[in-house]
């Protein structure tokens, strides 16, 4: 579990005892709550957002337990954990997966994999001129996508396989930090069925959690590589050209945003939507994080903004309470807005 452990250790370092251990669980799960989204930004943990969606609470707790027994972390009370010297040195010796980009890619990582695996299976069977086979992906949307893409690709069917092969090899060839086997052995082709995740882990002698992280790292590497070289990788580019980053706001925030754009104040929106003011404030913090042209100047004057940032940087904390003690003129809402807007930079 070295790989997953180093991610958790890194998260704990960033959180610095200011959040509970479960904020990491929610982060890895990609929970779409204001709190988790803010934490991801505030503590610069965006890369790990949603990189382990299937992780269960039980497994997570077991891992934490194990890390505690290995004396890499110690319990600081209230479910807050800190790194021990052993934990720090472990983290130093186990670099983080380099290509994880959870924040940008997690909304379509699964979709990308479904597309890629079906696309390879179909291409392989085209190459071997086989039309009777069971598609290994059942998702109807992916089937529809494939149909339309096959029409668009203007490559002779018989050459498709060779082109896809050379494009994939080009992607993987100059990646020293990545083992393409993690992904390649899971692909299905003509009369050759791909391995399941657990089979691949076993074959490559990887622990299951680490395999999962490594697989995702490889997928994210591939997505990045394809989008950076989309003009050259003409066939693989079809896999991602319509995968856009969704608007990352929660549904409820979007409603609030609409009302805000009509000129309503936070209080009026709360009354109108019959929600607590604190909920609406959460939404505003989300805007500060995600909406580039959202200005917080209306809610915090610039002098106060500077002061809050200074205190935060100076005492190296994101704990609202500590900041508030030193800037009594600011409300919690104002502090959160400032940290959300500028705290990450």
């Amino acid at each position: 579990m070295a790989q997953l452990a180093s991610i958790i250790l890194y998260c704990l370092t960033q959180l610095n005892g200011e959040r509970t251990i479960y904020s990491i669980f929610h982060l890895l799960n990609g929970k779409k709550s204001s709190q988790t989204i803010q934490d991801a930004h505030l503590f610069s943990l965006k890369n790990f957002f949603g990189v382990y969606e299937p992780l269960s609470r039980e497994s997570f707790e077991e891992i934490i337990q194990w890390m505690q027994e290995s004396e890499w972390i110690c319990n600081g009370g209230e479910q807050r954990f800190l790194l021990t010297p052993a934990g720090k040195s472990f983290l130093g010796n186990h670099p983080l997966p380099e290509f994880l980009n959870g924040w940008d890619y997690h909304p379509f990582t699964t979709q990308f994999w479904e597309r890629l695996s079906l696309f390879i299976q179909v291409t392989s069977n085209l190459v071997f001129q086989e039309s009777r086979y069971i598609p290994i992906q059942k998702n109807k949307h992916v089937h529809q996508w494939l149909k339309s893409v096959l029409k668009e690709i203007k490559v002779p069917r018989k050459e498709m396989g060779a082109i896809v092969y050379s494009e994939l090899v080009e992607c993987f060839n100059d990646a020293n930090e990545i083992d393409p086997s993690l992904l390649v052995f899971r692909l299905t082709g003509f009369q050759q069925i791909g391995l399941t995740a657990s089979q691949t882990a076993k074959r490559l002698q990887l622990e299951y959690h680490d395999y999962h992280i490594g697989f995702l790292n490889t997928l994210h590497y591939l997505i990045r590589k394809i989008s950076d070289n989309a003009t050259r990788l003409t066939v693989l580019a079809m896999l991602i050209h319509d995968l856009k980053q969704e608007n990352e706001l929660t549904l409820s925030s979007r409603k609030t945003q609409k009302l805000l754009n009509q000129g309503f104040s936070p209080e009026m929106i709360a009354t109108y939507r019959q929600l607590k003011l604190s909920t609406i404030e959460d939404h505003f913090v989300e805007f500060a994080l995600n909406v580039d042209d959202f200005s917080i100047d209306t809610y915090v004057d610039s002098e106060l903004q500077t002061k809050i940032l200074e205190i935060s940087n100076h005492s190296a904390t994101k704990k609202l309470k500590l900041i508030r003690e030193k800037v009594p003129a600011a409300t919690y809402f104002q502090i959160r807005l400032v940290l959300a807007k500028y705290g990450d930079r």
């Binding site: 390879i120 291409t123 392989s124 190459v127 071997f128 001129q129 018989k158 396989g161 060779a162 896809v164 092969y165 994939l168 090899v169 993987f172 083992d179 393409p180 086997s181 390649v184 052995f185 692909l187 299905t188 082709g189 003509f190 050759q192």
Partner: peptide, 14 residues
Amino acid sequence: WKDYLAKILTNREL
């Protein structure tokens, strides 16, 4: 991995 990929994507006979 490269051999595996070649095996499923290229048809030597073809």
